[in-house]
Structures are given as structure tokens and as C-alpha cells.
Design a protein around this nucleic acid. Structure first.
Lengths: 117, 117
DNA sequence: AGTACTGTGTACTACATAGTACACAATAAG
DNA sequence: CTTATTGTGTACTATGTAGTACACAGTACT
């Protein structure tokens, strides 16, 4: 599987070709880190940055924060808080859904969304 | 809400009254930490220990690991890995279940368990 | 009275996390 | 040609994490 750094590098370079303004420096500025740091992150020389920075990167690069966080080996703290409030129920549910295929999980999501309880 | 330390202290003292052999030292030995450290943890002087130690504590004190981890502000890494493998689907589901009452979530768990797909 | 066990205070340490700050060489632009 | 921009190498730092090691006073045991 692809590493976090090389993935966001690809995203950034793609955007840079399309519309300019996505150099390491420009993006680093928008995110609020030093260019040298972003450069190292993109080459996977250092581990992925904090959740805050990852979410900022997602915003700038128009990527899904949950996917970037997952690639960084993290899970959004808002999800963690939801689980922590009802740890037994959610732990049980998630472990049971582990072996279920995508369409089964999606079916549940749809049911909840429709709200036919 | 109760803090992690005072909660496990209560659990340990309760067991100690029932059957002896649950002094700070004995339990610390079983868990694999220094007594002084467990003492500080139980008084919430230091933050809760690592996931590994928390799970060991749960085993020794016959408590639910997921609940202890939640009290420590953590989520079991096995759950995190499940989420990280399909971040979008699980993030979506969990956020949607946030406002749903327990019985609704439990209904889903039962459905999945019964496996009527 | 002496030994053993109890909980706890103090001091210290190793490693990880999350970056900053500055310098530099190569390339591109006016 | 010179100025700006680009990516990157090196060095450093502050804070957090996760404990260990030892000493010590109070209580319980015999």
C-alpha cells in the first residue's frame, strides 16, 4: 500500500500542474508548517504530522481527511470520542462488521440514514 | 464522570476485601509495573498507562478492557485497524450512529449477528 | 520487639512526537 | 545577468509518553 507522504506529494503535484500555486512552500504556508518539514513528510523521511496538520492538508489538497488520517495510521478524534462514550456497544458493532463486505455495511448506513426505526 | 485511576482503585480494593492478594504491590507485579507507578496511576497523579498495561489491568481486575480504555481516553488498536482499512465507510457509519439511541445501535448489532443478509 | 508488608514521595531516564530555523544548490523568470 | 523561486540537507528543541529505582514511614503479624 502507498505511504502517506508519497500520496500527498502526488496530490500536490497534480494540483500544481493544473493550476499552479501548489509548490511545497505555498502549501506549507497554507498548512502552517515549515517548507522543509513538509518536504520531509512528503518523502516519508519523517512520520506523518499531527491530526490537525493532516486535516489542514486534506482541506488544501481537496482530499478526504478520513482517508489521509487512515494512511497516517490515525483515526479522527471525533470518531474516537463517539466510540468512547459507548465503548461496549461500538466495540461490539465494529468487531462484528470487520468480516462483513462493504455492501453489507453500506446497507446499514442507508438504513440509518433513512431512519426507518 | 469518574477518572480512570480512582475507578481501578475501587475495583482493586473491592477484590482485595473479597479475597486478598490484591495489594498495590501484588497487582503491580501481575501487570508488570512498579508499585509506585500503579499507586500514582490509581490516584490520577500521572496519566493512565499504555494500552498494553490497561489491558493487563482489565484482565487482573476482571474488568472490560474497552471500558477501561475509554476511561483512559483511548480506543483499542484492533478497532482502529478495522476502521483504518475502510475509513470512509466506518467514519460515515459511526458519525451517523452518534445521535442514535442505544437500542437502535443494538438492533443493528443483533441483525449483523443473526446474519440475515 | 522484630520482621514483613503496605502505600507513597522523590528523582531520574529513555524514547517518541512534532515540529522550527537556517543554509544551500539548482532551476526558472524578468 | 541577477533576482526569485524551488526543493532539500543539517542541526536543534520543546513537550509528551511511559515508565524505573530507591527510599521511607505507617500498619499488621508473630
Amino acid at each position: 500500500m502507498k505511504r502517506f507522504g508519497s500520496y500527498i506529494r502526488d496530490c500536490r503535484e497534480k494540483l500544481n500542474k493544473e493550476s499552479k500555486g501548489y509548490s511545497v512552500r505555498k502549501v506549507a504556508d497554507k498548512i502552517g508548517v515549515e517548507p522543509a518539514f513538509l518536504s520531509k513528510v512528503e518523502r516519508d523521511i519523517v512520520p506523518p504530522p499531527s491530526e490537525k496538520k493532516i486535516i489542514a492538508i486534506a482541506k488544501v489538497l481537496k482530499e478526504d481527511p478520513d482517508i489521509l488520517l487512515a494512511m497516517a495510521g490515525k483515526v479522527s478524534t471525533d470518531l474516537l470520542k463517539i466510540i468512547q462514550k459507548r465503548p461496549v456497544i461500538f466495540a461490539d458493532l465494529i468487531r462484528k462488521l470487520k468480516k462483513e463486505p462493504d455492501h453489507a455495511v453500506l446497507k446499514i448506513v442507508r438504513e440509518v440514514t433513512d431512519g426507518d426505526w
